[in-house]
Write a protein that binds this DNA or RNA. Structure first.
Length: 488
RNA sequence: GGCCCUAUCGUCUAGUCAGGCCUAGGACACCAGGUUUUCAUCCUGGCGACGGGGGUUCAAAUCCCCCUAGGGUCACCA
């Protein structure tokens, strides 16, 4: 049991949550750095809520993040199966073992009775808890009633005393056993509950370190007691601070997107997602906010994790996304942005491939203007519009109309641009355009504002010479001619 | 409410374990300038925090106690 083995055990009951992503990242990085094994186990004991699609979404999401696992439902491993629903026989045997050793006992209370008990306690403002009716039932009697077909659940017999453990992020934590109920291990239908399976499987899979969200902190003493009942050495625990929404409560859909898929669909770069998640409860050196997955792995240690919850800051996330985009190579950015262009119907994948050089120029001009891949299509939409009637942004048109001479300026410029000797390089053309403006003896905006409106319809945006060349001189001239009357 | 956890700028955090190097550093956001044909980028500057009270000590953001505040958890969910 000296091998370092960590795991994540997601339940496949929906989309892949950002909290799971961070937990996975921290576990994975810990194993990576120390040459340990990272196990993926699917916690599908709740058969009614678990779905195959959800499981697939989780695997896909983790892969997208760049996380791979050494053992898991899809790749197998020495402790297979890695889906809890396929391990129920093992769980049942474990429960019987505890029943035999007296660490567990049958409880014949009906759900209705327990329900009433709880309500009564709540009415009296007491902490709801099991009353221990069957805790000391004679084993022979218990056996007889079970054999007679009476329904029961199996409860863990919590001993007297207290449990203290050293949490790798929080330090020493103590729970009085008096505060812990004789919790249910096996339901009436014989299916095992979370606290029970998780320990069975972690024992069987020789898990050495358990890093999970703080919401599990209170489960830990129950689980440690179980390890002890099994005569097993408990793993080391580390409870990660919760990721909080802007309402300072556990991150939920209430205050924003919580599932990884939403961020992927919205065009957050992978590196930015990983980077941001790493920053939730951990910092590289306090100075450096931007780093890659390798750097994270190299420097991560569970003991450096922050104890306090981390409020999710969408602004910083976005900034990180934009920063990541700015650092990408143009070809990579073009690849990343292409699916969004296709999705919005601007170009087909084939067209992008055919006009790759042009497309990369289109992309290069937006690199420092977008924060998300998904913002790209809207920003270049003008290049795909009908030249006679492109959309004018309100502000663009207003800027253009500020200049009395706009129509004559555009007329003259259109003619000038029609000269076949104009350069085909943006920089050279831009320089000549500036010279042209200077020769006219007017200020830059007097020319560029009407021209920008005429050519792109936008108030801001990339270099104008670049826009003209991207469009092609002929199309640009058509747009300028159309503007002659539109801006009159 | 019981139990448990937590507490540095609005937010993410460095510094806390080994008290002095902290008139508390970085980043996002915000504000003001600069660069730029526009927008964006980029650069410069500014704003801005040790929750409160007691101790211990020559010295406390750092150690101790109390209070307060926030969060988590109290299922035959995970």
């Amino acid at each position: 049991m000296t091998d370092l083995r960590v795991r994540i055990a997601p339940s496949p009951t929906g989309t892949i949550h950002l909290g799971l992503c961070r937990t996975a990242l921290f576990n994975w990085a810990y194993a990576q750095k120390r040459g340990g094994t990272f196990v993926l186990r699917i916690e599908d004991t709740d058969r009614t809520r678990s779905t195959a699609e959800s499981e697939e979404a989780i695997l896909e999401g983790l892969r997208w993040l760049g996380i791979d696992w050494d053992e898991g439902p899809d790749v197998g491993g020495p402790y297979a199966p890695y889906r809890q629903s396929e391990r129920v026989e093992r769980h049942r045997r474990r429960a019987e073992e505890l029943l035999a050793s007296g660490h567990a006992y049958r409880c014949f209370c009906t759900p209705e009775y327990l329900e009433e008990l709880r309500k009564a306690q709540e009415a009296r403002k007491e902490t709801p808890r099991y009353d221990g009716t069957y805790r000391d039932l004679d084993p022979a009697e218990s056996e007889r009633r079970a054999a007679a077909g009476e329904e029961f659940v199996v409860r863990f017999r919590v001993p007297e005393g207290a449990t203290t453990f050293t949490d790798l992020v929080r330090g020493e934590v103590t729970f009085e056993h008096a505060e812990i109920d004789d919790w249910i291990m096996l339901r009436r239908d014989g299916s095992p509950t979370y606290n029970f399976v998780v320990v069975c499987d972690d024992v069987d899979m020789r898990i050495s370190h358990v890093f999970r969200g703080e919401e599990h902190l209170v489960n830990t003493p129950k689980q440690i007691l179980l390890y002890e009942a099994f005569g097993e050495q408990p793993p080391l625990f580390g409870h990660l601070p919760l990721m909080l929404g802007t309402d300072r409560k556990k991150l939920s859909k209430r205050t924003g997107d919580t599932s990884l898929g939403d961020y992927v669909a919205n065009g957050y770069p992978r590196d930015a997602v990983v980077n941001f998640l790493c920053l939730q409860g951990w910092a590289l050196d306090g100075e450096t906010d931007v780093f890659d997955l390798d750097t994270f792995v190299e420097h991560f240690d569970i003991v450096d994790v922050q104890k306090a919850g981390a409020v999710f800051d969408p602004d910083k996330f976005r900034w990180l996304a934009g920063d990541t985009i700015r650092r990408m190579s143009v070809p990579d950015l073009a690849d990343a942005v292409a699916p969004f262009v296709v999705r919005d119907g601007l170009m087909t994948a084939d067209e992008i491939a055919d006009r790759r050089e042009w497309f990369e120029r289109l992309v290069a001009g937006e690199q420092e203007r977008i924060e998300l891949f998904s913002e790209f299509p809207d920003r270049v939409r003008t290049f795909f519009e009908d030249d006679e009637g492109i959309a004018y942004e309100e502000r663009a048109e207003k800027n253009a109309r500020k200049h009395e001479d706009r129509v004559r300026t555009l007329e003259d410029f259109e003619a000038w641009l029609g000269d076949p000797s104009r350069p085909a390089e943006p920089e050279a053309l831009g320089a000549e355009m500036k010279d042209w403006v200077k020769e006219r003896g007017v200020k830059f905006p007097a020319v560029f504002q009407p021209l920008r409106c005429a050519v792109t319809g936008m108030a801001g945006g990339r270099d104008l010479a670049d826009s003209i060349l991207l469009l092609g001189v002929d199309r640009a001239r058509v747009r300028i001619r159309a503007a002659l009357s539109r801006l009159a």
